[in-house]
């Protein structure tokens, strides 16, 4: 879906720093891609470039047929739904109202919501299991619940591509699993393309189809999950002594710090 060629990014100002350089990668369509790397490796920056939050990158990015920058704001919003790391929680909105904003790219500032919009909103809430607190304030929810609400909004947006910036960072293991499981399910059922920045090695190994590892702003490794969950690969990516054990009678591997 996204094809990157020699993408680089520098901050501006006096203390300009190169955050990304020479990234060339293709993120496959209808697959779950994960961007991993140690802190400060540039993963969030790359995701933000894909989400068009940073526009001064060098190199070339294509989304589908067109260059990334050629899509209009609304067109882009209809294709790509982005969840930032710490979205601002509007203190006065209810869950349903917030999810409803997912329809904004389709109805704009003045368009009336039609039955189909309400259906999509309802379905997004059903998929994310948040119907029970549809009429509560988002601000009153726990972290895991909120994350599901945001996800619901992204789903209501009906975009074929989801960009998620550490969607599970603030959650406990159970919720992490729930969210990623949900995303992975959606990928399989609706055919979404998901690109997520993830921290947890095991979750990546468990859910991701394609992995891009960054190190100091450069591509360090890319490949599929099976090749990712190898001690050698992980040691190279994280620069730490990491071992991997395969869980018997399954195709799951888990990592450990040696």
């Amino acid at each position: 879906m996204f094809d990157l060629k020699d993408v680089g990014f520098r901050t501006e100002g006096k203390a300009a720093k190169t955050l990304l350089s020479d990234i060339s990668v293709s993120f496959p369509t209808q697959a779950f891609s994960a961007i991993v790397g140690h802190n400060g490796s540039g993963k969030s920056t790359l995701l933000k470039i894909l989400a068009r939050k940073y526009r001064q990158f060098s190199g070339d990015i294509h989304m589908g047929e067109k260059a990334l920058t050629d899509h209009s704001i609304r067109d882009f919003a209809r294709k790509v739904a982005y969840l930032p790391q710490n979205p601002t929680v509007p203190p006065h909105l209810s869950v349903r109202e917030l999810v409803g904003f997912g329809r904004y790219p389709w109805r704009g500032a003045f368009g009336r919501y039609r039955p189909v919009d309400f259906e999509k909103i309802d379905r997004a809430m059903t998929l994310t299991h948040i119907e029970n607190f549809a009429d509560r304030l988002v601000a009153s929810l726990s972290g895991g619940e909120r994350q599901r609400v945001w996800l619901a909004m992204l789903l209501a947006q009906d975009a074929p591509i989801l960009l998620l910036d550490e969607p599970t960072s603030a959650l406990d293991v159970g919720h992490q699993r729930d969210i990623l499981h949900l995303v992975s399910d959606l990928k399989n059922t609706i055919g979404l393309t998901v690109i997520a920045v993830l921290h947890d090695i095991d979750m990546v190994g468990r859910f991701a189809d394609h992995i891009l590892a960054l190190r100091h702003g450069q591509t360090c490794w890319q490949g599929d999950a099976r090749n990712f969950m190898q001690a050698g690969t992980l040691q190279k990516i994280y620069d730490a002594d990491i071992g991997v054990i395969a869980v018997p009678q399954s195709n799951i591997s888990i990592s450990y710090i040696a």
Partner: peptide, 14 residues
């Protein structure tokens, strides 16, 4: 209303 969610969110929603 969308604007009260912050610039990033607003742009993401078109």
């Amino acid at each position: 209303e969308l604007a009260s969610m912050g610039a990033d969110q607003a742009v993401s929603l078109g």
